[in-house]
Design a protein around this nucleic acid. Structure first.
Lengths: 339, 339
DNA sequence: TAAAATCACTTAAGCGGTTAAGTTAATTTA
DNA sequence: TAAATTAACTTAACCGCTTAAGTGATTTTA
């Protein structure tokens, strides 16, 4: 089962490979007679020839490949999609890329290989990095000669395009919303806030809202773990053990909000009667829970579309750095009550 | 920012590109002196050289790339992940592939390009196709000289490896479980059953169970639409309009089960008091709903791992066709009651 | 009607690697 | 000590495709 190459087509049609290449790429500058063109096209069909993009990209220096790096939400776990956020995002990225003739080279973070290595290895035309990573591996990307889009990373680097939302504002919105509804003891449920990332910003927004209202930050209200349903469920128990001091919780991801709802239910507590909850992201999931989740909406699809578009633009020669801050808003559903 | 090639390294180290290649690939058959090796390695580090896998694969005929095709659950929609099942599956595929030095080339179904074209275009080392597609595009894959793994497709083709579960048995299990608990009027909620695929098989299992119990198939109990949360929600309304004749429902996907729960709740009906529900897949989500979903469990992670492993094996020369039927079982949770 | 331009191709070099088959100098063997 | 090995490389061809620079024949221009 040997691969059929352009040579085979050339031989079949009785011309040089160059002529075949010209016909296939419709070079306007080149004139090929109608008969020859037809003969070549017939040979292509007969042999069922498909050009090898790999070889082509060797000369053209374009691969029509976009590298996408998605984080492992829980280290060591094979599921990078513990948070469906990534699924929704990846989905639009793939769709937009495909509509534009690009394919996706997908990779989780590889401990053995830096992203820049992967990118150069495979010579992708652009790379989209989602989420936070150790700063070192990001700056390595400097060596890349292809456009880099950082989604949801708080890395201030003039070399990279960035897409994100105002996470701090989001945290503020969510917490303020709860405060406005009479809540004073508001739990903060999230993954780690120690690293510079969306979670930390949302945390700062939380603090801003407290300050704004003259409320003190109570460290006992902080429940920090991993961004997973299970962790949030356990938080419900922890709250119970601590005597259910909170009347509300701000969960920095919908998946956490969902876990919290479930955890509370298990303990026989009612949402929002016993605890009001605001989530973050507005995943498809947010409508699925019962009660449905009041949450900070962000346009995940737009994030994905933008990321691809930036790379497309860059391929067209638009070199100026883009910095997109997409709008957010609070979506009221059923998980919050006024007290 | 020109790319650094093996030539640059060769020049820097004062040797031929061949020598560099030998050192980098540690050809045992070749003897390179320790000093030269060291000099080359130093040049590699100094120039930060990373070999171009694209070029390499041109000669080696291996790309270390696995093509993955995931269906668009809702045609025209950009979200292929309307059903999180695919997210969970893709996640393990990616992880397993990466552990073995492979990257993923991700693509949704492209109307303009057949999978075989994509595969040959990009010259992937193997291709994993998930879900059902028009038969034509699958048989096109015959032309491929690389291993093809079909996941969850009911295509009887001796040329392809397959992985799946006994969906019919699953449908039987679910429906029988409901019948055993006293249900007689059991809705069947699913996507289309017209095409040969997992849904059709589950439907057959549903019918088997009815027959087994001497129950007649009532066409009014069939709710066929798309595999999406929203559709299932609308089914709840439809049931209402038809007078709530059913005491139970078999939803052929967890996402449908979830939608049904939500839809029922909206109408003020209780689960499982007013309607018992059995789902299918046992996604992470199944535990998230309230009540949690009784469902047919399948090992999604194992499906993904197997798919990659088959390709890995094939690359090693194991040519015999593999046909994996993974075990399933019913997981009892809270969405079914005995009547 | 000779020179210039155009047409319809082909030659050959190169993209970044790999690898079979040399080549030269140093060792080993007979 | 001449012949055969071996060590340590290099040359050159090739993978499949693109493209700048020919080339010869035909057509157009002056």
């Amino acid at each position: 089962m040997k691969h059929i190459s352009i040579k085979d087509v050339a031989k079949e049609a009785g011309v040089s490979t160059t002529t075949v290449s010209y016909v296939l790429n419709r070079k306007l500058s080149q004139t090929i007679s109608a008969e020859t063109t037809e003969r070549i096209l017939q040979a292509v069909r007969k042999l069922n020839y498909v050009p090898n993009l790999n070889a082509r990209s060797l000369t053209s220096q374009r691969t029509n490949l976009i590298g996408v790096v998605i984080p492992q939400t829980e280290p060591g776990k094979e599921f990078m999609f513990a948070n469906p956020f990534y699924g929704e995002l990846l989905s639009t990225i793939e769709y937009t890329a495909r509509r534009n003739g690009y394919h996706l080279l997908l990779s989780g973070p590889d401990p053995d290989q830096s992203y820049s290595q992967i990118a150069r290895n495979r010579s992708v035309d652009g790379i989209i990095i989602v989420g936070s990573y150790p700063n070192r591996s990001i700056t390595e990307l400097h060596q890349l000669s292809v456009p880099v889009v950082l989604v949801d990373t708080y890395i201030k680097d003039p070399l990279f395009h960035t897409i994100g939302i105002d996470d701090r504002e989001g945290g503020l919105l969510a917490t303020r919303y709860l405060i406005e509804r009479g809540h004073r003891e508001i739990a903060f449920v999230s993954g780690s806030v120690s690293e510079q990332g969306v979670t930390q910003k949302r945390f700062m927004g939380y603090m801003d809202a407290l300050n704004e209202a003259g409320l003190a930050l109570n460290e006992k209200r902080l429940y920090l773990g991993t961004v997973s349903f299970d962790f949030a469920q356990s938080v419900a128990e922890e709250m119970q053990q601590r005597g259910n001091q909170e009347t509300a919780a701000f969960a920095t991801a919908d998946i956490l909000g969902m876990g919290l709802i479930k955890g509370m239910r298990r303990l026989g507590r009612r949402i929002p009667e016993d605890l009001s909850i605001v989530g973050f992201d507005d995943l498809d999931l947010a409508c699925m829970s019962d009660p449905s989740l009041t949450t900070v909406h962000q346009d995940i699809a737009e994030k994905g579309r933008n990321a691809v578009q930036i790379i497309l633009d860059a391929m067209e020669g638009h070199t100026e750095k883009q910095e997109h801050i997409l709008p957010i808003r609070l979506v009221e559903r059923e998980s919050v009550r006024r007290i």
